[in-house]
């Protein structure tokens, strides 16, 4: 197959378009649903092309779109239910800011600390290296379901229940980032390292001047993974927070669900759209590190 790919980018494009369309379908469906009125969602059987009805309606009466279609979003953004006291952002805007803060703090913490540790595991020789690394690996293999209660009890002992650090810190020092970056640092050719060593480069210099710049794509990948993961995290913030001012978007969005009524799908989908769009932007910003060919430029510089 790859030899045929060579014959022309047209085939590649065609293949990609077809695949991408199937990948985008649910997102498209989410977007369409988020613009519908509550009664419309189930009004016909789900069709292969779910937007046709909506399009017809918009063409029929363009003003309807601005009234009903944007209703879900304005309803979301106007939502507030926090207690009166306090002066900071409340309601939906607070959920958004909390989510941004959690995601940034966890991502930065993970990338910074685990790149340091990964460098030690990949490039330094010290007694106990293998053993400590296996301890890291081992923690990846235990499901969070059984570590949740011990973690919670630890945080209670520290007096940290319902604090920002309780949400952030346990997600920072996971083995995932360390393991991943170690694997990438391993691919750096030894010759480059030796050359730098001969030039009198210290281990810190090796880390700073060689390992990090040569692993920009890996750092970008870890950042994306960590950011997306912490942006969408639900269970842990739920467990450690007891007031709404600590909620993130995934928690906040469940507040729109009623117990007696069926879920308001359009509103929930509008919420999912609000959740997803920033992630797409982050991804688009991060993915350019996968194309620039940073590696060669950095070494020659």
């Amino acid at each position: 197959m790859p030899s045929r790919i060579k014959s022309g980018p047209l085939v590649v494009y065609g293949l990609l378009v077809l695949l991408a369309a199937s990948m985008l379908f649910p997102f498209y469906w989410m977007a369409i649903t988020s613009l519908k009125g509550k009664a419309d969602v189930f009004s016909t059987e789900p069709k292969l092309i779910p937007g046709r009805q909506l399009a017809e309606r918009v063409v029929d009466d363009p003003r309807w779109f601005f009234h009903s279609g944007t209703d879900n979003y304005s309803q979301l953004l106007a939502w507030q239910r926090l207690v009166e006291s306090g002066s900071g952002p409340r309601g939906f805007s607070r959920f958004v800011l909390n989510t941004v803060f959690f995601a940034l703090a966890i991502t930065l913490g993970q990338v910074i600390t685990s790149s340091l540790a990964a460098f030690a595991f990949a490039r330094l020789r010290f007694p106990g290296r293998k053993q400590i690394f296996f301890a890291y690996l081992a923690t990846l293999m235990i499901p969070a379901t059984v570590t949740m209660i011990p973690s919670y009890i630890l945080l209670r002992e520290l007096g940290w229940v319902n604090t920002y650090q309780a949400v952030i810190l346990p997600s920072v020092f996971t083995a995932y980032g360390t393991f991943m970056l170690r694997q990438f640092f391993l691919t750096i050719p030894r010759e480059i390292e030796d050359a730098a060593r001969i030039d009198g480069c210290s281990p810190l210099g090796l880390y700073w001047r060689i390992a990090l710049p040569l692993s920009t794509p890996a750092l970008a990948a870890l950042s994306i993974v960590a950011f997306v993961g912490s942006w969408r995290t639900f269970m842990w913030p739920l467990i450690v927070s007891s007031t709404e001012d600590l909620f993130n978007l995934p928690l906040g969005l469940t507040l729109f669900r009623g117990m007696y009524t069926d879920p308001d799908w359009p509103l929930l989908m509008a919420g999912s759209m609000v959740m997803t769009l920033p992630l797409i932007l982050v991804f688009i910003a991060g993915q350019r590190y996968f194309v620039e060919g940073i590696r060669l430029g950095a070494v020659k510089g």
Binding site: V83, R90, L104, Y164, L212
Partner: peptide, 29 residues
């Protein structure tokens, strides 16, 4: 490039810390 990304990372780090301090200080506890 390294200089640029260093300042970018440091900037984001500082902004994150500021955001955290502000959010913490405006809690309704």
């Amino acid at each position: 490039l390294r200089g640029k990304s260093f300042f970018f990372t440091a900037g984001v780090l500082a902004a994150t810390l500021l955001l955290g301090v502000w959010l913490h200080s405006t809690r309704t506890l």
